[in-house]
Write a protein that binds this DNA or RNA. Structure first.
Lengths: 138, 138
DNA sequence: TCTTATTTAAGAATTATTCTCAACTAAGAA
DNA sequence: TTCTTAGTTGAGAATAATTCTTAAATAAGA
């Protein structure tokens, strides 16, 4: 992955560029199934065995805070991160931890229109995600 | 809350009726903001100080397994439980842990129709929940 | 009332995550 | 370039939610 591209992401957010941040960012962008901190750790370990796990958590938190990543909602007590920022939805497997992205522009447009008309009393919507549970066919 | 009603829920699922299960069930049905195991614990403590926390986790798991409760998807590492089983959606506060239910029959019907026509390749849908993030107005 | 498979209490064990703090370093200033 | 300083990192201890273990207790059918 192009380092200049990764650096640019950090610079745009006004974050200091450190080797650790570049490494974690590259990992998260490459690992695409909504990785956990541990997934990042394992991916990185061979080439960079001396990055502390605490640092990885630290960096992931910073990235969430600065809008480089989002946390994925799950029913497990392990945090997972999502590097894709365009609006999209998630397909959850009923019997494994697999989570895939689902893009649907038509649906997004419909929802936008729907909730412009029908507003929810006492609540101001910021964004809407579908949480689609089911089975991945083999 | 009517104990006969609580007993009936357990009997219908073929679960043994124990005092602990009735107590936890009553708590979960009463606490309505998607309680954590700890919320249940605190609620119960005064009247039943001798129920072990492990037992509460145990019972909550059993209830999830038997379809009496659902786990709520969150981006936190604390499990939360939802006693309402009719189809409904969730409103998430962007800046607190508040989660409220949102019912919308029209929308459910639309989604059902929409995904009957437009199917997702390689995926069989079991259910769809909207995860609506925003601000609760004061 | 007996029997047996289940369930519970208590607390130890586990595991993801956070915290602490000294050492280090990125990046702007001189 | 070198200096300065706020911000970052490494290492490991601390925390907190959850799970596990085991002996004792109990629900429910015989």
């Amino acid at each position: 992955m192009d380092i200049a591209y990764l650096r640019k992401i950090l610079i745009e957010k006004g974050l200091k560029i450190t080797p650790q941040r570049l490494i974690v960012l590259e990992a998260v962008k490459t690992l695409n199934n909504h990785p956990t901190a541990d997934n990042v750790m394992v991916y990185i370990k061979n080439n960079h065995p001396n990055i502390a796990i605490g640092t990885i958590y630290n960096i992931l938190d910073t990235f969430v805070e600065f809008g480089i990543l989002r946390k994925v909602n799950t029913e497990k007590d392990i945090m997972r991160y999502d590097p894709i920022l365009e609006n999209h939805h998630h397909l959850y497997s009923g019997d494994s931890n697999r989570i895939e992205d689902y893009f649907d522009n038509d649906l997004d447009l419909f929802l936008k229109k729907y909730f412009t008309k029908k507003n929810i009393p006492g609540f101001e919507i910021e964004n809407i995600k579908l949480q689609i549970k089911g089975k991945f066919k083999p």
